[in-house]
């Protein structure tokens, strides 16, 4: 004879066995929708900055999704999207040889010049 003991669950507990909720699947298969990276330009004159990523079926939908997800609070005046797979990244394992050599080359900063007073907005 099988005994089924009642297991008391607390808020936040995750049941081991599938409960009633298992039959209620809200998550559709979005595997077919590719990932997009979103770039937002916040104000005229400033450059586009990476805002985040989202899923969309095509570029039009990606821009609209970006509009709805990332510019709800007037964060932007222009949106770029690009499929994440087209972004090529530097290899984190090579970070040392990539970036560290610049460390001791302070002379590359334009901080050794005296600016004439007439030059403004630098």
């Amino acid at each position: 004879m099988n005994f089924q003991f009642i297991k008391k669950m607390y808020y936040g507990d995750i049941p081991d066995e599938p409960g009633n909720g298992a039959a209620y699947q809200t998550k559709p298969d979005t595997a077919a929708w590719p990932l997009w990276e979103v770039f937002i330009r916040s104000k005229r004159g400033l450059d586009h900055k990476h805002a985040g990523s989202l899923k969309a079926a095509d570029a039009t939908m990606a821009i609209e999704n970006a509009r709805d997800v990332y510019t709800r609070r007037q964060e932007g005046v222009s949106i770029w999207v690009v499929e994440s797979k087209y972004i090529h990244a530097s290899n984190p394992d090579e970070a040392e040889s990539f970036f560290d050599p610049a460390e001791d080359k302070v002379y590359r900063h334009p901080s050794f010049y005296e600016l004439p007073d007439e030059v403004k907005h630098m």
Binding site: T26, W33, L54, K55, N65, D68, V69, R72
Partner: peptide, 14 residues
């Protein structure tokens, strides 16, 4: 909270 995907949930709510 019931949209088919997160992005569209936000879109319809907007």
């Amino acid at each position: 909270g019931h949209g088919p995907v997160l992005e569209q949930d936000i879109a319809i709510t907007n």
